[in-house]
Write a protein that binds this DNA or RNA. Structure first.
Lengths: 186, 186
DNA sequence: GTCTATAGAGCGATAGAC
DNA sequence: GTCTATCGCTCTATAGAC
């Protein structure tokens, strides 16, 4: 076999994840990716039809990982403890994989990504707020919580909290939202 | 005068704003910008030393505009009405100038931008939540509100709310946060 | 202050040999 | 499945004429 397989879709995905986090979205070039795999750029086209397909695979991978993390974290204690743990897990994911998280929030890519890959995330958020509002399908409350987490993650990453840090803003927001959600149960 | 001035820093900034919103951050190239001004790309270097300087000017411009919008909107009625009006103004700004808003949230650029240009925004947020928590310097509450607004704007723009829309998530979040803030006044 | 010309680098993607 | 070679295009930035 003169040309044995040196790489695979899985290996490419893995390397792309590392490259993405190190070099940013602009650093994720097919040339650099191939270099990291000991391969030339055109070889990648045997495994992914184009760059967008690879990016979509990255988004789906991220959706699954985040979904798992939320499901695991939200097993904790009562409804409010579970919400707190899931919130921390969400932010931890965004902190550890900031560029992947960006990619996951890209409108064009998430439109191309499979619907199911992102389902676990949304389902968990719905379940968590539902336990507080006593409405298992409280979309409005879920949107509010998601917005808060997404915004906190973004501001944190952009350094907008400055050197003094968020100063308890996470706890303040979570407490206020949880209290507000419980009031909806009224 | 063989080479009369065809453009100016102000005209460049104006054109850059339009180009930014039409073509996205990647669409803001010096070539395209010059083309829109009826000028060649190298001429721009007479007015801004490099591309980053232009981007910083854009960020400062955006900070001032958003600050003004928030100050104006937050003149309304009581503390809670003012907070709602300012929140809507914030989201309206992010909706009308999404790419500029992105640029404003870029860590590298906001570090280079003048401190004062972003001060009005933060001061207004602090004042609004302070009226509810009765603490004029309640950083935690301000961070929470800012996170919620920033996240809602981002999710809305990324199309993450889907075709069904946010389903009252804005109102739910604002109500919950306002209630939580009032409780802090205790 | 604007211009032409160009340096110097990057990118995604394709053709065709092996 | 990988390779070399290349197309065609993008970009920021500089040199030097006028």
């Amino acid at each position: 076999m003169p040309y044995p397989a040196k790489t695979s879709p899985e290996a490419i995905l893995e390397a792309a994840l590392e490259l993405l986090e190190q070099g940013g979205e602009d650093g994720l070039s097919l040339r650099a990716l191939a270099g990291r795999l000991g391969v030339k750029a055109p070889s990648l086209y045997r495994h992914y039809p184009d760059k967008t397909a690879l990016e979509v695979a990255l988004v789906e991978h991220g959706n699954r990982r985040l979904g798992e993390a939320l499901v695991t974290a939200s097993r904790e204690g009562g409804p409010e403890a579970a919400l707190g743990a899931a919130a921390r897990a969400y932010l931890e994911f965004a902190r550890t994989h900031p560029r992947l998280y960006d990619l996951m929030m890209d409108a064009r890519l998430s439109a191309l990504a499979s619907r199911e890959s992102g389902k676990a995330v949304w389902a968990t958020v719905l379940r968590l707020v539902g336990a507080l509002t006593r409405d298992p399908d409280d979309t409005a409350a879920a949107v509010a919580l998601w917005s808060f987490l997404h915004g906190y993650a973004g501001l944190e990453r952009s350094g907008m909290f400055g050197p003094s840090g968020p100063k308890g803003g996470l706890e303040a927001g979570l407490r206020a939202l949880a209290a507000g959600f419980k009031a909806r149960a009224g």
